[in-house]
């Protein structure tokens, strides 16, 4: 594992490997390990009481459910956006392409305020939706809208290089063999994009589970109904209840990690076959 038998142009395998481990420890592993250590102060029964509280459990369901729904929406529409931006040439294309990154750059609170203004019952869009009997702001639907906004660039940016890599010839070959447009999409294009699609989905999903800034404004934060898990963590922190805050954080962390691991496993399994 630490052998240097193969000569490499990048010098200092030991140095760079040591740096990588140190960096990961400082930036990722140590901070994350302090979470269970801190929450351990509570003791097992208090820990369980905090994390299995009905209000907290409702928030898990909401956070994960809304994040999953938003990631699904992005998976479908992100694919279409990525396809159009990569495959077609049209005026204003570069502008549209740049717009995709906006959710990355915009402070999330700004996004939250803007979306709330739009979707509130008296807002520009919310007004008409309200007439139709659909309320967006201050409901789980509103949370999903905010998370969709946040997650879009992940799906689009992961898919773009892969779509670029999909030669037009592949589609021509399929149609010369008699496949219809629909068969080409289902049997050739989608399987080819699937690993990257899954990665984009996982990234958008993971980002959405932890999202706080853009959601708190539009959520309304009603206990049991529209309270997301990150908000509960902040609430505990504001009451200087650090142990309880970290306890909830640990659960969120474990759930996210398990989901990401599962998706990565699936992704690795499907992409192994595509390795060129």
């Amino acid at each position: 594992m630490f052998s240097r038998q193969r000569r490499n142009v990048l010098p200092g395998f030991r140095l760079t490997m040591g740096y990588t481990i140190l960096y990961l420890c400082l930036i990722v592993i140590v901070p994350l390990l302090t979470l269970p250590v801190q929450s351990w102060e509570l003791g097992w029964s208090a820990f369980w009481r905090v994390v299995s509280d009905a209000r907290v459990v409702a928030s898990y369901r909401l956070s994960i459910g809304a994040a999953f729904a938003a990631a699904c929406v992005n998976a479908v529409f992100g694919l279409i956006v990525a396809w159009v931006l990569t495959r077609y040439r049209f005026p204003g294309q570069r502008l549209f392409d740049a717009l995709i990154d906006l959710p990355f750059a915009l402070p999330t609170a700004v996004a939250g305020i803007t979306l709330t203004t739009l979707y509130a019952p008296n807002g520009w869009i919310g007004r008409y939706l309200n007439d139709l009997g659909v309320q967006v702001a201050f409901t789980p639907l509103g949370i999903t809208v905010a998370l969709t906004f946040i997650g879009l660039p992940f799906v689009v940016r992961t898919l773009q290089p892969v779509i670029d890599d999909l030669d037009l010839e592949i589609e021509e070959a399929a149609s010369s063999l008699g496949a219809t447009r629909w068969q080409i999409l289902r049997r050739v294009v989608l399987p080819f994009l699937f690993p990257a699609w899954l990665t984009g989905f996982a990234l958008a999903f993971a980002r959405s589970i932890g999202e706080y800034g853009s959601v708190v404004f539009i959520a309304g934060n009603m206990p049991m109904r529209t309270e997301i898990t990150p908000l509960l963590i902040i609430t505990q922190l504001e009451q200087f209840n650090y142990a309880a805050a970290t306890a909830i954080a640990v659960v969120l962390l474990v759930i996210s990690f398990a989901l990401l691991l599962a998706i990565n496993g699936l992704q690795a399994w499907t992409s192994r076959r595509l390795a060129a």
Partner: peptide
């Protein structure tokens, strides 16, 4: 269209389905 013509086409870069 190409589907209806019943021609076999072989591409320079093979265009195989990688998956």
């Amino acid at each position: 269209d190409v589907r209806a013509r019943g021609v076999g086409f072989v591409f320079q870069h093979y265009a195989l389905f990688r998956h």
